[in-house]
Amino acid sequence: MPPIPTALRVTPMLIALGASGGFAAKWIGLPLPFMLGSMLTVALLATFKGNWIPEGFKFPENFRAGFIALIGLMIGAQVTPELFKQIPTMAVSLAMITLFVGLAQAVNYVIFRKIGRYDPATAFFCGSPGGLIEAITLGEEAGADIRALILQQFLRIIMVVSLLPVGLSLYHGTPVGSSGGATMARGATDLAHLVPLIAIAIAGVFLGRRLHLPAGQLTGPLVLGALLSLSGIYAVDLPQWLVNLAQIIVGTSLGTRFAGIGHRMLAKGLVLALLSSGAMMAMGAAMAAAIVPLTGENFEVLLISFAPGGVTEMALVALSLSANPAYVTLHHLYRITLTVVMLGTAAKRMFPKSGP
Rank of each mutant, 00 (worst) to 15 (best):
P2T: 06
I4Y: 01
P5I: 09
L17V: 12
G29P: 02
G29N: 03
P33V: 08
M35H: 11
G37K: 13
G37L: 11
A43P: 10
L45G: 09
F48T: 15
K49N: 01
G56N: 06
G56C: 03
F57P: 04
K58H: 03
E61S: 08
G66K: 07
I68F: 02
L70Q: 06
T80M: 00
K85T: 07
I87H: 02
T89C: 08
M90D: 11
S93Y: 05
A95P: 01
I97M: 08
T98L: 14
L103K: 12
Y109K: 14
V110G: 07
V110A: 15
I111R: 12
F125A: 15
C126D: 05
L132V: 12
T137R: 12
L151P: 00
Q152N: 14
Q152M: 14
R156F: 01
R156I: 06
I157V: 15
I157S: 01
G167N: 10
L168Q: 10
G177D: 09
S179A: 15
M184V: 11
G187T: 13
G187D: 12
A188L: 14
L197K: 09
I198N: 07
R210Q: 11
P221A: 01
V223C: 01
A226R: 07
L227I: 15
L230N: 08
W241G: 11
L245M: 13
V250I: 15
A259Y: 05
M265P: 02
G269K: 13
G269N: 12
A273N: 06
S276N: 13
S276R: 11
G284I: 05
L294E: 09
L294C: 04
G296I: 09
N298T: 10
V301N: 13
L302D: 07
V311R: 10
M314N: 07
A318G: 11
A318D: 07
Y327E: 09
V328M: 02
T329F: 04
L330Y: 03
L338D: 05
T339L: 01
T339N: 00
V340R: 08
G344Y: 02
K348A: 04
R349Q: 12
F351A: 14
K353Q: 15
